[in-house]
Write a protein that binds this DNA or RNA. Structure first.
Lengths: 178, 178
DNA sequence: AAAACCATGTAATTGGTTACATGATTGG
DNA sequence: CCAATCATGTAACCAATTACATGGTTTT
């Protein structure tokens, strides 16, 4: 079900072709929230169009078809976003899974991984912050979506960075005690 | 592939039955990293046993079978954790997806959701912190796994809380300008 | 005795990834 | 004219969820 709404939301932000949407899933939204490949996107767009939640608004070269949400699609999206989200849905995140399983490693190995994680997080923070400054400098044409995503990413990586530091201390403390 | 390693990791921390593992996926690891239902776990345990990465270490009432990782399983897990993790894998997180699509809502609606998110995050932080204090008070028997998870959760929710506040300001600013 | 919970499994369906397939357009 | 990229689609396979199915044990 989530893919439907991801597509509706992306189209609500900006009308796009299936190809465009595939690219957009490789950016912020794909890194932190949800991703999909083109082989999943094209059939889903067809279904959404059949349900009249999206429609083709222009056709271009190479069979390119740009979709936009219909008013019905906007309503469906709004209902979903404002509706009850009791369970938060299932989560799949291989990166975080690795972090959670670290305690299965010997201390020295765990420290190596934790240092790597910290480095990676620091690097990502730097990338996102410089991107944000570029965007701000390039004028006010900052659309909400990418901006929200970048901020979310920066804060998430900061949390990861801090966690890795804390975890590393815990492991060191455990090593000393033994 | 990830499920295999999730199971190996959980068993490395503590030998468990399929039923136990199902419950454990409903806690920290399921909320932040990876989850699975029993109908996926039992067949996967059978496959892991066939590959000699896990083994049955005891049988109890009601056909209960407790599994533990074998040395080969431990090696496989270690290789995976220390191996190259170039792409971080795909991410699926419905909660975060909702956040990313918020910009499709009208400002007033978005503010309602953002306030809800902030409240939820604050509440989760409180729950996790009190749980951690309880654990600390209950003595030193704090195993690494749940502890790491709780800390990760607390930091993640803090990031979410901060993000929601920031996003709310952004939306308010956009509202005024229009 | 009944309800709640422990404990395991399989089958049917849906969701998602990888591989296969084709062709147009643009830039160098 | 060649390579890169744009653009769309389907098929085969694997992963995951939901529904079906059974029975033992503990608690009230």
């Amino acid at each position: 079900m989530s893919l439907r709404f991801a597509l509706l939301g992306l189209l609500a932000e900006e009308p796009s072709s299936g190809y465009d949407l595939t690219r957009r899933f490789e950016e912020g939204i794909g890194t932190f929230a949800w991703s999909a490949g083109h082989s999943q996107i094209y059939p889903e767009l067809a279904k959404l169009a059949a349900a009249q939640l999206v429609e083709v608004v222009s056709e271009g070269a190479r069979g390119r078809r740009v979709y936009d949400v219909t008013p019905a699609g906007r309503d469906a999206l709004r209902d979903w976003l404002l509706g009850p989200h009791t369970d938060g849905g299932t989560v799949r995140n291989e990166f975080v899974l690795r972090l959670f399983l670290l305690s299965a490693l010997e201390d020295a190995d765990a420290q190596v991984v934790l240092r790597g994680v910290q480095e990676f997080a620091a690097q990502q923070i730097a990338v996102l912050e410089s991107a944000q400054q570029e965007m701000a400098a390039a004028g006010l044409a900052r659309s909400a979506g990418p901006n929200l995503a970048a901020k979310f990413g920066a804060l998430s990586y900061q949390a990861t960075h801090e966690w890795a530091g804390w975890a590393s201390e815990q492991v060191a403390w455990r090593t000393e005690r033994s």
